[in-house]
Amino acid sequence: MESLGNGRAWVFGDDIDTDVLAPGRFMHRPFDELAQNCLIDISPDFAKNVAPGDVLIAGRNFGVGSSREQAAQALKARGLAGVIATSFAGIFYRNAINLGLPIFVGDANEIKNNAKVGLDVDTACLSHEGGTVRLEKIPEYLLKIIHDGGLVPHLEERFANERAGR
């Protein structure tokens, strides 16, 4: 089993929507400012204190609302290692993969807020002090996009290879 690492869990409920992830009133502001206000309306500390390696755990229908990509982009920009929810809104799921944010369907609701956690993206295992939660694996093809950092870098690499005749 992988080590616990020093990530922390940020636990949220059901129906976390794109308006709280990327608040409309910051949508016309520079992206950094938008990201600094990610989830501000329901968790004022999140954007300030989230650290690389942390994971977000939520209930059903995470990312519901508009198709704005900034919702997933803001989470990634704050250094989150991944999002785990029992279900996701479809367009959010697509956007997360295409922006390189690891995203897992799974039930991790036994884990308490602020608990120590370690996420292994490839094996889809979330370890915590009480054991390991197995999440649904990200399909191989999508995992490659995530490892490349999202769709745009993924395609950049592909085109570069094509040009080099590889």
Binding site: R68, E69, I91, R94, N95, N98, L155
Partner: peptide
Amino acid sequence: FGIGATEMAGVLAT
């Protein structure tokens, strides 16, 4: 179906 701008750019390119 509908997609965001990043994905659309990917489709337009490939």
